[in-house]
Computed example of a mutant assay.
Amino acid sequence: MISEINTIKFDKFTIVDACTSVRKMINYTADGYRFFIVFENSHLLGVISIENLLQSHPNRIAVDVISDNFELIPEDTSIWEAYEKLEKNKNKYLIVLDCSNNIIGIVDYKGLLPYIAKYIDPLTGLYKSDYLYFEGIRNLNLQKELSILFLDINEFGNINKKYGHINGNIILNEISYILKQNTPQYNWCRFGGDEFALVAPLKLEEGIALAEQIVNAVNEHQFTLNIPIKVSIGITGVRLNSSYPLRNQIKIINNLINKASLESTKAKKSLPACLSIGGCFDISEIA
């Protein structure tokens, strides 16, 4: 569910001295090496990728062509966290260390994309539901209050039957666009079908205000073929309790998502109301 960086297959790398010639390193590439980690007197200087290597004059040495744009990360770093680091700086290299501080791999943006792609919904470009657990657990560990929003498109099955699944897919993309535009600081997920979910470090009243903003944006949007679209959003939250130990974070996130989804169903049954609020639970009630 929350994969660690050590679960991916690292590209082949080797460690070289700062004075190693580019010509010699080019010869290494025949054995499949993609990265060269450069040391001088046991001091880590930087990284050379095969792409940079092949653009360099063969008479130069490693220290002339290295990139010092790297970061050391432990092997239990989540793939999500690694991706966020590289998304902010696409030229950075992440050097992965095991528990004994030995180098076990190196990752760049290009190399991580195939692994992160399986967590991205191909239709909408939103993350899949796995991301909810990463974001939820990260914020719980930071001692932050959480709000969970669970959004359903009303009568979406009938929309598919009346207008066709191609237009239904267009509607899903338009909803995704509205979510991205109205909450650029957060990452919505496509939970499945016509369901979308968000876990965010917001107090319940802030989550409610955000849900109202989304509903208004949907109501004001002109959808393809002027199809009338309404959404229902269930909202719930959790606050930490200093006297209650934080544990079973995945169970907490599961329970919160489930409660928010039930509130979304309740909102659908209470039309024309668009929101249903499940309240903010103490961590002891939800763990």
Rank of each mutant, 00 (worst) to 15 (best):
I2F: 03
N6P: 07
T7I: 11
K9T: 15
F10S: 12
T14K: 03
A18G: 00
K24A: 03
M25N: 04
M25G: 02
D31K: 14
Y33N: 04
Y33G: 05
R34F: 09
I37Y: 01
E40R: 02
E40G: 02
N41Q: 14
S42Q: 10
L45P: 15
G46F: 00
I50A: 07
V63N: 08
I66H: 06
S78D: 09
Y83Q: 05
K85F: 14
K90V: 13
L94W: 07
I95W: 03
C99P: 15
I103M: 06
Y109Q: 11
G111C: 14
A117G: 09
S129L: 12
D130Q: 13
L132K: 12
N139P: 02
L142D: 15
K144V: 07
L146C: 12
S147V: 08
S147D: 05
I148P: 08
L149S: 07
I159C: 00
K162N: 04
Y163C: 02
N167M: 13
G168C: 03
I171R: 03
C189W: 06
P201H: 10
A209K: 10
A209C: 09
V218Y: 00
T224G: 09
K230W: 00
I235H: 00
I235V: 13
T236Y: 12
V238R: 06
R239E: 10
Y244F: 14
L256F: 07
L262I: 05
T265K: 13
T265L: 13
S270A: 09
P272Y: 00
C274A: 11
I277P: 06
C280A: 13
D282K: 05
D282A: 09
I283P: 12
E285W: 11
